[in-house]
Simulated scan of single mutants.
Amino acid sequence: MKRIFGFGRKKKGQLPPGSASLSCPAGAYELRQKDLGKLHRAAASGDLAQVRQGLKKYGIDGRDKAERTALHLACANGHVDVVMYLVENKCKLNLLDNDNRSPLMKAVQCQQEKCVAILLDHGADPNLADTDGNTALHLAVLSGSIAVAGLLLEHSANIDAQNKEGCTPLILAVSEHHEEIMEFLLKKGADVHARDQCERTPLMTAASGGELSLIKVLLRYGADVSHKDTNGWTAEDYAVIHGYTR
């Protein structure tokens, strides 16, 4: 299946190889010290005292060159105390960076569960979409985090949201071979008949990869074996075409 989610691309504001940067967890922003103001640098490093000082001089929602706020940086790096302080001081929760990602989306992408919980409890929108059309729930699926996916669904995340390729979180879970999160989504009511832009269903995606265990789960939830995509192919056709005649 064509990979269209955009996670391998170099993001705006990221470092060229060999540049001095702040350390960061997988998925977080790569940051050059010289590109950050004092408030953003303090938020990225988790220095709460400096964040407090910075708020006396700088606006809480000020942006850097990549449109990131202090909240974006604190969330991406998992600085819970800084996130709570910013939220309690009425920062805006749903501002978007250059990739159209909110602080919540960065917290999800970087698997910062506590930050995700704080943002959702204070009203962050779980249904915003980034430049690829992915919502926070799509990002939770990519990270394989059932706990974060559950938090998002508890706060009214759209379980069947489609990205720009028409992929729902369930279709994405199948394409990423995440059986556990796939079944979790199905138990929560995800549409087993969801279709992408080419009318492909989760069953077709599983069949094209020869994923027998995934196929069994999808069939148990009533997946339609007779549905045809825009090429007129069924899930069985996908299995045969990809060499999985079994």
Rank of each mutant, 00 (worst) to 15 (best):
K216M: 06
E211S: 15
N163F: 09
G232D: 06
I181M: 04
V174L: 05
A207I: 09
K216D: 08
D160F: 04
S156E: 14
H155E: 00
A161R: 03
S208Y: 04
W233T: 04
A235N: 03
I159P: 12
L185Y: 04
H227P: 00
D229Y: 10
L185N: 02
L186Y: 02
V217P: 02
H178N: 10
E211K: 13
E199H: 13
H178A: 07
M204G: 06
A223G: 05
M204P: 08
V225N: 00
G222T: 06
M204S: 04
R200M: 14
E199S: 15
L214P: 00
N231T: 08
D191G: 10
P169Y: 07
A194R: 02
E199R: 14
R220G: 15
E180F: 13
E154F: 10
D160Y: 04
V217M: 00
S226N: 12
H155Y: 11
L218S: 04
E183S: 03
E183G: 00
D229K: 03
S226T: 14
G222L: 06
W233S: 11
P169V: 03
F184C: 02
E179C: 09
D237H: 15
E154V: 13
L186G: 05
I215Y: 06
E165S: 11
K164D: 09
H227V: 15
G166C: 03
T205K: 14
E165H: 09
L152N: 01
Q197V: 14
H193L: 14
G222E: 06
R220T: 11
H177A: 13
M182A: 05
K188V: 01
V174P: 11
N158Y: 12
A173I: 07
N158F: 12
L152T: 03
E199C: 15
L153R: 01
L153A: 03
G222D: 05
N163T: 08
A235V: 10
H155L: 02
A206L: 05
A157V: 08
D224T: 01
E211R: 13
R220H: 12
N163C: 12
D196F: 07
L153M: 03
M182E: 01
T230G: 00
E199V: 13
G166N: 05
I181N: 02
D224W: 05
S213H: 13
V174I: 08
I215N: 08
L219N: 08
E211C: 09
H193C: 14
T234D: 13
I159W: 11
E179V: 15
Q197N: 15
G166T: 02
A190N: 01
K187F: 08
V225K: 10
E183M: 05
H177E: 09
V217F: 01
E176G: 03
W233C: 11
A206V: 09
Q162N: 02
G222C: 07
E199M: 15
N163V: 09
K216S: 11
K228L: 11
T168H: 02
C198S: 13
T234I: 11
L212M: 09
S175M: 11
E176I: 07
N158W: 10
E236H: 14
H155P: 08
K187P: 02
A223D: 06
H177I: 10
A223I: 02
E199T: 13
C198P: 00
L219Y: 07
E179T: 14
T234W: 12
I171W: 00
K216R: 14
E165P: 00
L218A: 06
K164C: 08
G232T: 10
L186K: 01
A190H: 08
V225Y: 00
Q197R: 14
A235T: 10
